[in-house]
Amino acid sequence: MRTGELVIIGRIPSASNATLVCDAVLGETEVRCVYKPVRGEVPLWDFPDGTLAGREVASYLVSEALGWSVIPTTVLRDGPLGPGMVQRWVDTADNEEHPVHVGGATELPSPRIELVDLCPADTVPVGYKAILRAIDAGGEPVVLVHADDPRLQRMAVLDVVLNNADRKGGHVLEGLDGGVYGVDHGICLHPDDKLRTVLWGWAGEQIPAHLLADLVELGEHLVAPGHPLAEELSGHITEDEVLALAERVDDLVTTSRMPMTPGHRPIPWPPF
Rank of each mutant, 00 (worst) to 15 (best):
L26D: 00
E56F: 08
G50D: 12
G54P: 06
W45L: 07
P48C: 05
S63A: 07
W45K: 05
L52D: 05
L61D: 10
R88D: 15
V90L: 02
A53M: 04
Y35L: 09
E41W: 01
V25E: 06
V38E: 07
L52W: 09
G67R: 04
G40H: 05
G54R: 11
W68I: 01
F47K: 00
G54L: 11
R39I: 11
W89S: 01
E64I: 07
V86P: 11
R77Y: 13
L52H: 13
Q87Y: 14
P80G: 07
W45Q: 03
E41P: 04
K36I: 12
R88I: 14
E56M: 08
L52M: 14
R32G: 05
V31F: 01
W89K: 02
S63Y: 09
E56W: 04
E30C: 00
V31T: 13
G79Q: 09
Y60E: 09
Y35K: 14
L52I: 11
S69W: 12
V75W: 15
W68S: 05
P83I: 13
S63Q: 08
T73A: 08
D49V: 10
L61R: 14
R39V: 12
W45P: 02
V34Q: 08
A65N: 14
V38Y: 02
G54W: 08
P83A: 08
G50A: 15
S59D: 01
L44C: 04
R39H: 07
R32Y: 01
P37M: 15
P72N: 05
A24R: 04
D78C: 02
A53T: 06
S59A: 15
E56Q: 09
G84N: 13
G67F: 01
V57H: 03
P72M: 03
A53H: 08
W45F: 08
G84A: 15
I71K: 04
E28C: 00
S63H: 12
L66F: 10
A53N: 06
L52F: 15
P37R: 13
M85Q: 07
C33W: 06
E64A: 13
L81H: 12
T73V: 10
G82S: 09
L76S: 15
L44N: 01
E30G: 00
T74N: 05
E30F: 00
P72D: 06
V57P: 02
K36V: 10
G54I: 10
F47M: 01
V57L: 05
Y35Q: 05
M85V: 15
L76Y: 15
W68G: 03
R77W: 05
V31L: 02
V57F: 02
G50P: 09
L44S: 03
D49Y: 09
E56L: 06
E28S: 07
S59C: 06
T74K: 01
V90S: 02
G82E: 10
D49T: 15
R88N: 13
C33R: 14
G27M: 01
V62L: 13
E41H: 07
L81D: 06
Y60A: 13
S63E: 06
V34I: 15
E64R: 15
K36T: 12
Y60V: 09
T51A: 08
V42R: 14
V75P: 12
P80A: 09
P48S: 09
V25F: 00
R77K: 12
G67Q: 05
V75F: 12
G84E: 13
V34W: 06
R55E: 08
A58W: 00
R39F: 01
